[in-house]
Design a protein around this nucleic acid. Structure first.
Length: 932
RNA sequence: GCGAGGGUUGCCAAGCUAGGUUAACGGCGCAGGGCUUAGGACCCUGUCUCAAGGAGUUCAUGGGUUCGAAUCCCAUCCCUCGCACCA
């Protein structure tokens, strides 16, 4: 009876021996293998979705360790940034939702929660929790190298990194329109928004119409339509302001004046003017100089653009319908739409056409936005400017828009005005978000074409798993532009040349993989001594180590350890980081390190689902990793997470599936221990051992390619099913042979990377010395592959299945089954067909043989049937059969087995020696079967 | 909208890059049987429709190429991810 299997006991016991064993130092006699993961931001508890991110690299680490590599798998915590500040603030404010999340879902004890008003306490708490859970899951991490990104030594490292990046001119100062919360005095990202995350920043051109001593600017996305302007629109209900904007006198809405201030314009309000007072006055067309009447319209929104709009009734449905409404009242009947764009599919006045075709009754009709979009899109993609457009006539709308914009901005003093596409864009603090131009901002210049080109050249040299992501990287490199790399608030490292700024989180985590190599040794060094020159020596080998603040021996040691591990071999991360972090780190490595130290490979993960739904901490749809490990066992969690889908595919955590994985592990435990007393031998041993070589080979190939699921398919399901057949084929009464020892020894090791606890325990239980985690990975031995035996067992398997399916079909009480084995000449036919390039004309080839031709129709029939048969068999098997299989001998030897399987008397007959009509049906590898 | 990826039999998911191993791996679920009480534990069998080992209809939809397509080509529909101040 096998020992009872209690996973949690085993885990406790084994963990103690592991932790020091996974501390990894340079070993000059061994090849290194350095993998790392995007480090976590510890602001909450880990859920099973995070689990796979760390377990897959651990499986890989364990695999290569067993293959004799010196493996480094480090971990650290990224605490740079602002989110945790907000969390601390909300906890201090007793925000209910936050307290519920942390006290409830994450189960932070009350007294700890009370101290969460300090952001540092939060990250330290969760960093410790991460480490604890990671250890529980058996991750083979070298914990000596743990650090956080705000320790002084790391800050010095970042300063060094940026001394180079800045020195290379890759950090630039610039203007940039951002979403901005005046209340928080901060730019806001998508995740900072309470509402309106679908809003975009739109870039309007202000077209200025002279109006007495003033200008009336109108905001437009379509400046080329200036040639079709018939009038301006003003909202008579709104009070506008007179203001000096950058020294010019303008009339704009109060909101627009406010927005202009945020966009680096000087705005001095000098007075007010009611919209109603502007109605029926006229401004001057900036190009033609004609008078442009100002008309009233209620749809004009003072909170959009300048609060005044130019009217192009021929092409803007809103303008058309507003004008029509007025004209129906008998007003302004002299105004006629001026068409300026011809579009295939539309007549001369598209706006009129589309409004009337859809029978729009008035300007508040909900369909208006949709129609406007439809027309704008059609004009933009297919429209051409007509003869009303002066020098621009004949241009495409696309081209004309660029040209007219440039003309207005460069020569007519227009400005580009930024505004949100929606007004309800609300910061997490509850205040409205505006567009602000930041000028005192530092950018990483990813737009630099030379830098971009370097990364494009680098990409083909980086291994990518899965290969499909390569295209996404290439596209990201093209798409990246200046990245604002500094922030005013948050945790992190100050910008050395401009200390009022801090480096933002994505920018201080691009080359930290190099820091891991020395992390455990550098923490003992006083940060003040870590000058850029010190890092230059360690990472670049520049300078004289005898004249640096740190002693020379230490520096040489650090330098040597860095060079041992670097470059890293694989970096693992979820796929959503491709468009930022994973690409950023390529840029920075390229800028800092020489050719031979560039990243070698990346593995990109899919997403995690919980019961088919996206996991989300804020929605409570998560299953905590620690709970999973406690409930199911660490090995179960590991095997499920790496076995239910390949790493780059999405996986779906469902408890009932996890439970069946747990049973699988228990089954293995049972089988291995039950086999330990087996002895003796049987003919089927050769087959079992032969199959094992294939399983080893396939599992090794799969893991080498990061296919954890495929590897498990071979190493678990494959071996289990081989063992099942082996059992069936054992002589009656035997429960196993000594061959099982060889199988279980290999099996334990094949499974060790995935279920390290169980296998570690089994390894010692089955009498092996040392840790399974460091045992040599099994190697397939080609000499043990026995093709003839595998083919003969294949024949038996197929025949047993056929007999069973026939028995199921015939409704008789059968007592006997007769197998008719195909005659030699049919094997000849098989050989000819197998060898034929073109199986369509193979009958001719067969009949070219004089001996076969003498068989007449029998031969052609056999040839046709053989073609079909061969198409239904695996090519390798066909090749083996063609070499020659003595089916009569195989069936005769297995007669007892066949009788036991079928419960019938079995007779094996050579087809040619029988007159039974069914005998003619026999084909190679497909004996004719008669039950009676 | 733009970019990347995907739609396979009840569910999950192989296979599709190098067309014939494919009615389509494996797992889950379900059904029947066994384990000489019961079973959520284990084992076996079955699980598109008919059927002496065969045949018919299937791999989002509609076309096409081919002796032959889930696999190649075209079009359409649907889904997921990314689209930037950031975890």
């Amino acid at each position: 009876m096998a020992k009872e299997f209690v996973m949690s006991d085993i885990e406790q016991e084994i963990r103690k021996t592991w932790i020091p064993a996974f501390e990894s130092n340079p070993a000059e006699d061994k090849e290194k293998f350095y993998i790392n993961v995007a480090f976590p931001y510890p602001s909450g508890a880990m859920h099973v979705g995070h689990g796979r991110t760390y377990i897959v690299p651990d499986v890989v680490a364990r695999f290569w360790r067993m293959r004799g590599m010196q493996v480094l798998f480090p971990m650290a915590f990224h605490v740079t940034g602002a989110p945790v500040l907000g969390i601390a603030k909300r906890i201090a404010n007793k925000d209910e939702k936050t307290l519920k999340l942390y006290g409830g879902l994450y189960r932070v004890p009350q007294e700890t929660l009370d101290s969460f008003t300090d952001p540092i306490v939060i990250v330290n708490y969760f960093a410790d929790e991460y480490e604890r859970v990671m250890k529980q899951l058996g991750l083979s991490i070298d914990w000596r190298r743990r650090f956080t990104t705000i320790i002084p030594q790391y800050s010095k490292f970042i300063e060094w990194q940026y001394s180079h990046i800045y020195g290379q001119g890759k950090v630039v100062k610039g203007e940039y329109p951002v979403r901005y919360c005046p209340n928080c005095d901060q730019p806001v990202g998508d995740h900072d928004l309470l509402e309106g995350d679908s809003a975009e920043i739109m870039h309007f051109v202000f077209v200025k119409y002279p109006f007495g001593e003033f200008f009336i600017p109108t905001a437009t996305l379509r400046p080329e339509t200036i040639f079709g302007v018939t009038n301006l629109w003003v909202n008579p209900e709104v009070t506008y302001v007179k203001a000096e904007v950058d020294g010019e006198k303008w009339i704009v809405s109060r909101e627009a004046a406010e927005k202009l201030r945020m966009q680096k314009h000087t705005v001095i309000e000098t007075g007010m003017i009611s919209g109603a007072d502007l109605v029926d006055k006229a401004a001057t067309h900036p190009i033609s100089g004609a008078a442009v009447p100002i008309l009233p319209a209620s749809f004009v929104d003072p909170d959009m653009g300048s609060g005044l709009v130019m009217s192009v009734p021929a092409h803007a449905p809103f303008d058309y319908i507003a004008l029509r409404d007025l004209q129906q009242e008998g007003k302004y009947t002299d105004i006629v739409p001026i068409p300026l764009v011809t579009v295939p599919g539309f007549g001369r006045i598209p706006a009129q056409e589309i409004v009337e075709k859809n029978k729009i009754p008035h300007q508040d009709d909900p369909r208006m936005d949709e129609l406007t979009q439809e027309l704008y899109t059609a004009e933009f993609s297919k429209g051409k400017l007509n003869e009303n457009c002066g020098v621009h006539a004949g241009k495409s709308v696309r081209a004309a828009r660029e040209d007219v914009t440039r003309e207005f901005v460069d020569t007519r003093g227009s400005i580009v005005f930024h505004d949100m596409s929606e007004q309800r864009v609300i910061c997490r603090c509850g205040n409205r978000v505006y567009v602000k131009i930041l000028d005192d901002q530092w950018f990483l210049n990813y737009a630099d074409p030379v830098w971009k080109e370097q990364i494009h050249a680098q990409l083909p040299k980086v291994a990518m798993v899965p290969p499909e992501v390569r295209a996404e990287f290439a596209r990201t490199v093209d798409w990246l532009k200046e990245w604002p790399c500094t922030r005013r608030v948050g945790l992190g490292t100050r910008v050395p040349w401009d200390p009022k700024w801090l480096f933002e989180p994505l920018s201080d985590s691009t080359i930290y993989m190099s820091y891991y190599t020395i992390a455990h040794k550098i923490t003992g060094i006083d940060a003040e001594k870590l000058t850029p020159a010190v890092f230059d020596y360690i990472f670049l080998g520049i300078g004289d180590c005898d004249v640096l603040p740190v002693d020379a021996d230490t520096l040489k040691e650090l330098r040597s350890e860095f060079l041992y591990w670097y470059p890293y071999d694989y970096r693992f991360s979820a796929k959503d980081l491709i468009s930022n972090h994973l690409t950023f780190q390529l840029f920075h490595h390229r800028a800092i390190f020489p050719d031979e130290l560039q990243p070698k490979g990346m593995v990109v993960f899919g997403m995690g689902l919980l019961n088919g739904m996206k996991m989300s901490s804020s929605k409570g749809n998560v299953f905590l990793l620690e709970d999973a490990a406690n409930e199911f066992g660490a090995d179960t969690v590991r095997m499920f997470l790496v076995g239910s889908a390949e790493p780059w595919q999405d996986f779906d955590w469902r408890n009932e599936l996890v439970l069946s994985v747990k049973k699988q592990i228990e089954r293995m435990w049972q089988i291995v221990l039950d086999s330990s007393a087996a002895s003796g031998s049987a003919p089927i041993d050769a087959w079992l051992i032969s199959r094992l070589q294939h399983r080893i080979d396939a599992a090794t190939k799969a893991l080498s390619a990061f296919q954890t699921r495929q590897a498990l398919q071979e190493a678990y399901n494959g071996i289990v099913s081989d063992l099942a057949w082996y059992r069936r084929r054992l002589p009656e009464g035997s429960s196993g042979t000594a061959a099982l020892h060889e199988v279980t020894s290999a099996w334990i090791r094949l499974m060790a990377p995935v279920i390290p606890y169980t296998t570690e325990k089994l390894w010692s239980e089955t009498g092996h010395a040392g840790l399974a985690s460091f045992a040599p990975w099994p190697v397939a031995d080609p000499a043990l592959v026995n093709n003839a035996v595998e083919v003969s067992e294949e024949l038996l398997q197929r025949t047993v299945e056929d007999i069973q399916s026939i028995l199921k079909l015939v409704q008789i009480d059968a007592v006997k089954v007769t197998l008719f084995v195909a005659p030699a000449w049919k094997h000849e036919v098989f050989g000819i067909v197998a060898a034929a390039e073109d199986k369509r004309n193979v009958v001719k080839t067969v009949m070219a043989d004089a001996g076969l031709r003498s068989k007449g129709k029998d031969a052609t029939d056999a040839a046709v049937q053989t073609v079909k048969l061969i198409h239904s068999l695996p090519p390798e098997l066909v090749a083996s059969i063609a070499v020659g299989v003595d089916e009569f001998a195989i069936f005769s030897a297995a007669k007892e087995f066949l009788e036991r399987e079928s419960g019938l008397a079995v007779e094996v007959v050579a087809a040619e020696s029988s007159t039974h009509p069914k005998g003619r049906m026999a084909l190679p590898f497909k004996p004719a079967i008669v039950v009676e």
